[in-house]
Nucleic acid binder design. Structure first.
Lengths: 172, 172
DNA sequence: ACCATGTAGTAGCAAAGAGAATATGCTGTG
DNA sequence: CACAGCATATTCTCTTTGCTACTACATGGT
């Protein structure tokens, strides 16, 4: 009985659901590529439903009722469970371990936290700390001057540091 | 009869095959995570064979012989066809359109070109030109100061520009 | 003789993504 | 008022992708 691993898609759906009981179609609108959240991380409609199924299976969400929609089949209203909310909150406070995950994971967490009304400053600072470790590890690893991959990593880590600084300024 | 789209994995295999007739196992060693190419873009063994199958189906490669290996089943030697080489060379000269594709696509092309003995300067400069367009587009789009996604893109584009400058210096 | 190791290729499952299909009520138009 | 189109809401299914594990064969050590 290990705790099931959730994909970013599933966390995104869980995150939207945590803003209040909702149904697949409404959630998918929040995660559409034109919406605020969807611009950060898009989840297409069928995937939202699959994620919801999975969240129910894992006990992180549950169906509470069905109600008539504006049209079409009945809406199935879901809400997060207590374990689901715990799991989400834990995820929301973890910084991304790899720079390549920042664009999606970190930004998604940041946006969800902001929408919930809390301050994202803790997350930004934790991410900054995690990045500093990456930076010093890169400094040590730098052996060959023509290692294109390491060079790219270095430039990117530095850009990410500047980005985090900007964000910290924005929220202080 | 449109020209079939190839995945990055398939281009990687095609690229290795273009260095000389070879067989799946040998190609997979080049694209292993510890090898020069594999550090840029890893392709696992079963995927190499699938890519080879697809390249044969699309007419970009062909099996030319089977020979006894050092051990185990016979090797199936493949080589690129004329259309395959044309297709590869076309791909190799195209810069990546999105900054997020640089780490993989551009670096893969760069490494393949370098290994072939040609100068990667043209690709670097073309990529630089493509990036300049991205940069000016970003400057115009910048409306809201707290748009985290745009801010991220901007920092990244700038870092990429610096990276390309470093590379250009390396090869001049 | 046996077992580990390295070579070479194959099988098959599970997740992820995209498109289309289905069901349903509302609205406008002739 | 019939009926086509449209928006809502969910489901189905196909394809692609990525792994893990397996078969098969030869060599070398104990």
């Amino acid at each position: 009985m290990t705790t099931p691993r959730l994909s970013t898609t599933e966390y995104a759906v869980l995150g939207v659901l945590a803003e209040g009981p909702s149904h697949g179609f409404a959630i998918s609108k929040q995660l559409d590529s034109t919406a605020e959240l969807g611009r950060v991380f898009t989840v297409r409609r069928p995937l939202v439903y699959r994620a919801l199924d999975r969240l129910v299976e894992t006990g992180y969400a549950e169906a509470i009722s069905t109600e008539k929609g504006d049209a079409g089949p009945n809406r199935v209203i879901h809400r997060v469970t207590r374990p689901g909310r715990r799991r989400l909150n834990q995820w929301l406070t973890e910084p991304a371990l790899h720079v390549r995950d920042l664009r999606i994971e970190f930004l998604l967490k940041l946006t969800l936290i902001r929408r919930s009304g809390h301050s994202p400053l803790d997350l930004i600072r934790d991410q900054r700390t995690a990045l500093d470790q990456t930076l010093s590890a890169l400094d040590e690893a730098r052996t060959e001057p023509d290692d294109h991959v390491e060079l790219w990593r270095q430039h990117n880590a530095i850009a990410t540091a500047a980005y985090l600084n900007d964000l910290e300024d924005l929220y202080t």
